[in-house]
Amino acid sequence: MEITSHWRIKKQRYALVGEVCPHCSAKIFPPRDICPECGDEAKDHYQFSGRGEVYSYTTLYNAPAGYEEQAPYTVAMVQLEEGPLVTAQLTDIDVKEPEVGMPVEMVTRKLGSEGDRGILIYGYKFRPVLETA
């Protein structure tokens, strides 16, 4: 992937900015400009809270090229509290074993590097929400 393609979606990657449909109020992430619920145009920005729970997860041992040095790592589908599912890595799980339904929150971390110059790519990951009793 080229650097410009990462720059183009940096708002989504850094801050979970998606869309809200002005016609049916569906919250949309990733943004797609046409509402998947009602089929009308949906380009209004929407800031997701970054909170959600683990829908499912797994740990990878055989990583694709470019990710080998990170392996093993754990990925998840997270159900955001506003509704959409999002795919990302889980982080900080040395303190808490992942499980389906576990509350998580978004953090921005390094996703990987790219190209001969090793351009760093940052974006969202999710970590367990620790109870602050």
């Binding site: 694709p64 990170q70 990925v75």
Partner: peptide, 16 residues
């Protein structure tokens, strides 16, 4: 971009 593989995607379906 998050380092997924096809096997990892299938694994998440199987776990769910």
């Amino acid at each position: 971009i998050h380092g997924l593989t096809q096997t990892a995607l299938a694994a998440m379906l199987m776990r769910r």
